[in-house]
Design a protein around this nucleic acid. Sequence first.
DNA 1: TATTGTTATACTCTATAACTATA
DNA 2: TATAGTTATAGAGTATAACAATA
Lengths: 164, 164
Amino acid sequence: MLCHYHGAVDTPETSVLGDPRDDDLALGLLLATAHFNSRERLGERLRPFGIEVRHFGVLSALHRHGPTSQRHLSELLDLDKSAMVRIMDELERSGLAARNRAAHDRRAYAIELTADGRERLRSAQAEAATVGREVFGWLRPADRERLVGLLEELVARTEPSSPG
Amino acid sequence: MLCHYHGAVDTPETSVLGDPRDDDLALGLLLATAHFNSRERLGERLRPFGIEVRHFGVLSALHRHGPTSQRHLSELLDLDKSAMVRIMDELERSGLAARNRAAHDRRAYAIELTADGRERLRSAQAEAATVGREVFGWLRPADRERLVGLLEELVARTEPSSPG
DNA sequence: TATTGTTATACTCTATAACTATA
DNA sequence: TATAGTTATAGAGTATAACAATA
């Protein structure tokens, strides 16, 4: 769709939008497309591992933090706790992670990667690194530095709390 | 969420992600956040006009093209035709556009802006231009040129048909 | 037969509120 | 009373297939 779309973005007829060099909405769409495409490319390549993009961050966080409560995990990743329930259901069903009861607090879980989860995460991380190189590897260091700098400035200026 | 999120992005704990200058997933999240924030800022400012972002593109296209079939409109904006039905229902309900039957083809509509729609679109476009300046106006021409160039290259390289 | 538009359905992603069991 | 987790529900998005009326 026009300007800042959340779904698939094929090139619409040019008459609807201008050049992103002059047209702010066209620049917004360009951002949306860059985001959408890169996410899609990652998703396609993780899927053969039985891992969706939404799982990948959770698995990585588990790998870094070790046994963690579901609550802490959702805070780490800034995910809603009900979304976390669904994701953990999926991870448990596919045998990547397990919900064990925490010893010190019987309300909480101690969520852990399974052995299989650890192994599949390792493969998925290698694949993600490859995708990362394919998607961003062409950026020369100076270009990447500039891109990151501009995007960070943009994000800072569009933060909800930010001054218009 | 981690890497390429489709929803709200607050800064997660830093331990989950690295620096977008080195970490591809962090750069993906930065893209997602830039997109999400700028879309949110536009949405907030259009809402007082009773216009959602998804309506804005349709109204603009109607303004440019004059009476148009629903089918053509969905092609123009690369929207699914069933999504188009819902959006048109909303636009009709809020009195911004009307579905008249096409004279030459009684299956099709000749969709038009109402007088009220034309007027509210004009105000909304002025507001959108203001938001555009707030969001992107700080970019010096050379910066914007670079940003657009890099994003276009990124999009070209991540197009579904594109070579890895 | 093909096309315009509608409906029904389904899936992803988010967010809220109400609930349970513990603390 | 507060917290950990679950459930139900809602909403914004998308996509598909089946269908009516018309061409």
